[in-house]
Simulated assay, not measured.
Amino acid sequence: MDRRGRRTRRVVAEINVVPYIDVMLVLLVIFMVTAPMLQQGVEVTPPSAASKALPQSDDVPIVITVDKTGQYAVSGQDAPSGQVPLDTIQAYVLAARKLNPKIPVLVKGDKDASYQFVMGAMVAMQKAGVDKVGLVTDQPRSNSNSPSGGK
């Protein structure tokens, strides 16, 4: 056999990206389906008060939520989801504050929650070494018909 009649194959140096695109689309669908389910905490209606807003901070605050039945939830970076016992929240806050001592801690109590439940959350935060605990409120709606309204 002579060399002139033989064809040589060239190596193709291309990456086949089709499988990567398939994986990316599957992951996109998974994240689109699971993202709405990742909401943490419980739904509460905080009381309204005329107070000034906290200064903006780059740190994501830890928010302890107290619903009207006395159930606790916590939201923050890597926080346990759903309703959790107060001692678990206390341990989470203690660990989070060891990593970042400046992280703000807020208590968001339902307006119909017992004062005892809100104070329980604040005492647990004090035991976790938090010296300043903020309370979350809604801004009051201005109503000119109220006794303290703008007359």
Rank of each mutant, 00 (worst) to 15 (best):
R7K: 13
R10S: 11
V11S: 15
V12S: 06
A13E: 09
A13W: 08
I15N: 08
N16H: 04
P19V: 08
Y20E: 13
D22H: 03
V23L: 07
M24E: 15
V26W: 07
V26G: 04
V26C: 03
I30G: 00
F31H: 12
V33K: 02
A35H: 08
M37C: 08
L38P: 06
Q39T: 14
Q40F: 04
Q40Y: 03
Q40R: 08
Q40D: 06
G41V: 01
G41Q: 01
G41C: 02
G41L: 02
G41P: 05
E43Y: 05
V44E: 00
T45P: 02
P46M: 06
P46V: 13
S48K: 05
K52H: 05
A53H: 08
Q56I: 10
Q56N: 10
P61N: 12
V66F: 05
V66E: 06
V66R: 04
D67P: 13
T69L: 14
Q71K: 06
Q71P: 05
Y72E: 01
V74R: 00
D78N: 12
D78G: 03
D78K: 08
P80E: 01
P85K: 08
P85T: 11
I89A: 00
Q90V: 07
A91P: 10
A91V: 05
V93Q: 00
L94I: 02
L99N: 15
K102D: 12
I103M: 03
I103D: 01
L106R: 14
L106G: 06
K108L: 09
G109H: 01
G109P: 06
K111S: 10
K111P: 10
Y115R: 15
Q116T: 10
F117R: 05
V118H: 04
M119W: 08
G120Y: 03
G120A: 11
M122T: 14
V123G: 06
M125W: 02
K127H: 09
V130Y: 04
D131C: 14
V133R: 03
Q139L: 10
P140A: 05
R141W: 10
S142Q: 12
S142R: 11
S144V: 13
S144I: 12
N145V: 10
N145L: 09
P147K: 02
P147C: 01
G150L: 04
K151I: 03
